[in-house]
Design a protein around this nucleic acid. Structure first.
Lengths: 202, 202
DNA sequence: GAATAACGTTGACTAAAGTCAAGAAATTAA
DNA sequence: TTAATTTCTTGACTTTAGTCAACGTTATTC
């Protein structure tokens, strides 16, 4: 039991660190804040949240890697986000408005997550002003990077985007299947295979 | 003088409406809030903010239409956002961190704007909690739509994306040049011309 | 550890979109 | 109103990426 507690301490330190990157937390408030979150484990390939449902929680990843993707009418998947350790992920719009989400969230590896319900999420805003601030900053950063990503997709070839992603998130390539990378980049698996062949034979 | 004041009243009502869509404003606070904003006019094609500079303000559009775009090393433009009436626009990341922006903001038509400085922006968060809330909600919505846009760009052809945009923002097509639409959609002007030919000849 | 499934590669072909160049049409400015 | 400029269109060609099918290679799973 004491051992388990020790592990949890280590884990949540990661969470604390990540928030402190964005904002200063008043002494003692983090512990209270943590009680709003729940620890969950998921197995490889297990679904965490499914499209067509109102999402039950939002997520911070302590360990593992998961993907957010959408499936169109033809059954084709399109990955919009990978969340590795230290990343927040979820469909906040749907959670807060209690509307159906169009996204699936699936564990790519065995995952350890901290999750927070819609109610506790709203509670966190009321109780902790620093959380609101951190959240705002996070969103600003994220929206800016999404916009940047759009530009890249408009102006660069698949090959260049592949190289950029490889440079930006090298570890990702060692933990997710290649066709997931292709889906995220918005190209077919075959095209990615050919891009790699071209790059690594020259 | 009294006539001018009347005009301003009408204009800011638009601003009030737009915020009230997101959040309820306590009696009397809007007037105080308004003092943090400045009214500005820009001529057609005039630059409002330039890349390579720290942006001096963030924007709400009362009248007219402007574009946010990036220019790459080759001198090619890529439009990331159109702001028509009732829209917020700016590079908040750069404003708040006082870093150089990569985006240009240019008036497409004669524009009437409300602008807010970095200092007043931070002040608004401190003074008006409803503004923080409205802002958070706005960002959530925007980020979600950017993600959705990424998916569309990954999975749909230029033709379908053109039709979707036409459906979503029909008025935009009557006020901005066609090659701006092409740039925003991430296709060449020639391709857009051909898409239109194909659509309207069948 | 054999069977099964998932993943990655390759070839041949097709489709979508970009590029370059020329010229028509429309808009703006003098 | 005319001249200048910008915008749009079209043709010919190239590049990039998608599709379908086959097959080899890894991983899983029982």
């Amino acid at each position: 039991m004491s051992e388990k507690k020790e592990v949890r301490k280590y884990d949540t330190a990661l969470f604390l660190e990540e928030i402190q990157k964005r904002v200063a937390i008043p002494e003692g408030e983090f512990e209270k804040f943590l009680t709003l979150w729940e620890f969950r484990k998921f197995n490889r390939n297990e679904f965490i949240l499914q499209s067509g449902e109102v999402p039950k929680f939002s997520i911070f990843v302590l360990k593992g890697c998961l993907r957010q993707y959408i499936m169109n009418e033809k059954g084709e998947e399109s990955i919009v986000y990978f969340a590795e350790e230290r990343h927040f992920i979820g469909d906040l719009q749907s959670i807060r408005n209690k509307t159906i989400s169009i996204y699936n969230f699936q564990a790519i590896e065995e995952c350890e997550l901290l999750t927070i319900s819609a109610e506790n999420w709203e509670q966190a805003f009321i109780e902790f002003s620093w959380w609101t601030k951190a959240h705002l900053t996070g969103y600003q950063k994220w929206a800016a990077s999404l916009q940047q990503q759009m530009v890249e997709h408009h102006t660069l070839t698949g090959e260049v985007r592949y190289l950029n992603l490889l440079k930006a998130k090298p570890k990702l390539f060692q933990r997710v299947p290649q066709h997931y990378i292709a889906s995220y980049l918005g190209i077919s698996p075959e095209t990615l295979s050919r891009i790699r062949k071209k790059i690594f034979n020259s």
